[in-house]
Simulated scan of single mutants.
Amino acid sequence: MTDFTQTQHDLLYPIRQWLEAIEIHNIKLAQFLCKLIPSQCPFERNIIFGRKQIHIPPMCKLNPLYDELVGLRFRAMCFLAEN
């Protein structure tokens, strides 16, 4: 599939492009992003009801923007490490 056909079918493509284009030039913004975006998926849980256990899978894998958000957090961490 070419890049053009992916953009036709991907409704989140403009948001993906916007997240990828964010440049971090401010320490406060970098700190905010590192606090806002978790370093690991916080949603995976095992819930026990009496004798039964229900496993809730990590929701991060279901988030269609997960890779872009993790990349943004990584860029923020790199900015903080350099400054």
Score class of each variant (00 low, 15 high):
residue 8 Q to S: 07
residue 59 M to I: 13
residue 24 I to G: 07
residue 56 I to E: 14
residue 68 E to T: 01
residue 76 A to V: 01
residue 2 T to L: 08
residue 63 N to C: 14
residue 2 T to N: 13
residue 68 E to H: 14
residue 5 T to S: 08
residue 29 L to K: 14
residue 79 F to W: 12
residue 44 E to A: 15
residue 14 P to Q: 06
residue 9 H to S: 06
residue 6 Q to C: 04
residue 17 Q to M: 09
residue 21 A to M: 02
residue 56 I to L: 15
residue 18 W to A: 11
residue 68 E to L: 00
residue 26 N to S: 14
residue 4 F to P: 02
residue 24 I to A: 09
residue 70 V to S: 08
residue 67 D to N: 11
residue 56 I to D: 06
residue 9 H to W: 00
residue 2 T to W: 03
residue 34 C to P: 02
residue 75 R to T: 01
residue 68 E to K: 14
residue 76 A to L: 02
residue 59 M to N: 08
residue 47 I to M: 11
residue 76 A to F: 01
residue 72 L to E: 03
residue 44 E to Y: 11
residue 1 M to A: 12
residue 35 K to A: 13
residue 59 M to A: 14
residue 72 L to Q: 05
residue 74 F to R: 13
residue 78 C to G: 00
residue 43 F to D: 15
residue 32 F to I: 11
residue 65 L to W: 03
residue 21 A to P: 01
residue 37 I to C: 08
residue 28 K to E: 13
residue 5 T to V: 09
residue 80 L to E: 02
residue 44 E to T: 10
residue 42 P to Q: 11
residue 4 F to G: 00
residue 77 M to T: 07
residue 62 L to F: 10
residue 54 I to T: 13
residue 83 N to S: 00
residue 78 C to K: 07
residue 46 N to F: 13
residue 77 M to F: 00
residue 37 I to D: 03
residue 10 D to F: 04
residue 24 I to M: 05
residue 20 E to V: 02
residue 5 T to A: 07
residue 46 N to D: 14
residue 78 C to Y: 00
residue 78 C to M: 00
residue 55 H to M: 02
residue 64 P to E: 10
residue 28 K to C: 09
residue 19 L to T: 02
residue 74 F to H: 13
residue 54 I to S: 07
